[in-house]
């Protein structure tokens, strides 16, 4: 899922304080799992903004709302009326949702309340870790299910490098060496021979180097 972190409150306030009316708009799927951008967080943020407005003696009507996903048209039906009537929208979605709202309401200013951080999993309650960079050319089948693009700090395809020590990366003792994990996993699978194979140069044109990506289903 997409993980995001709420921006510092002062930064959010600076973005929106000039408006007279604002809709704080949650996105109740990915960023709700990490308790940063769901409809509940939208309600909390709206309340904090109202209190800040009172403290600073600014007149601003702050309301809250939200939908299940801000990246698809059908979900907007229930909030259409509210958004059309809004002077500005503070979106708690990831960068995708913010852009989608901005594109859908061309004359309404839309502000991001979150910093979209990474594509990750939830290995333990309250912990989110990066696991994919959407490089467009998955190699997990030959690396024992450990992604060298997102988990090796150097994105090496024939690792490890000399900075690997005791299973940890030289960047930080908190970060596992991805290639140590690859080797351990291949050993467990009895596929250590695969480790000896040299990976060819990766085709980065399928990553961001090829520009913004899209794909279209046939028949639509």
């Amino acid at each position: 899922m997409i993980v995001g972190e709420q921006k510092p409150f002062d930064e959010i306030w600076e973005m929106v304080k000039g408006h007279r009316q604002l809709t704080v708009f949650g996105c109740n799927t990915c960023v709700a799992v990490c308790h940063q951008g769901g409809n509940k967080e939208a309600e909390i943020l709206a309340s904090l903004l109202r209190m800040r407005a009172v403290q600073e003696e600014v007149t601003i009507e702050v309301v809250h709302g939200g939908i299940e996903r801000q990246c698809e048209h059908p979900f907007f039906e229930s909030a259409q009326e509210q958004l059309v009537a809004s002077e500005a929208v503070l979106s708690l979605a990831c960068g995708i949702g913010v852009q989608f709202v901005a594109g859908k309401y061309p004359s309404t200013p839309v502000y991001p309340a979150l910093n979209t951080t990474f594509l990750g999993d939830v290995p333990a309650d309250g912990l989110f870790t990066e696991k994919c960079q959407a490089c467009g050319d998955c190699v997990l089948g030959v690396t024992g299910g450990v992604c060298p693009v997102s988990r090796c700090c150097k994105r090496l395809f024939n690792g490890p490098c000399g900075g690997s020590a005791n299973g940890k990366c030289e960047i930080s003792k908190e970060i596992d060496c991805a290639w140590q994990l690859v080797v351990d996993r291949l050993e467990a699978l009895g596929k250590l021979d695969d480790y000896e194979k040299i990976a060819p140069i990766k085709d980065w044109s399928k990553d961001r180097a090829g520009g913004p990506r899209s794909f279209k289903l046939e028949g639509f």
Binding site: K40, E43, I44, S47, L48, R50, M51, V54
Partner: peptide, 11 residues
């Protein structure tokens, strides 16, 4: 008890 109950009370 929810975050919002507390915030509404302070508001």
């Amino acid at each position: 008890l929810d975050h919002v109950y507390l915030l509404r009370a302070f508001e």
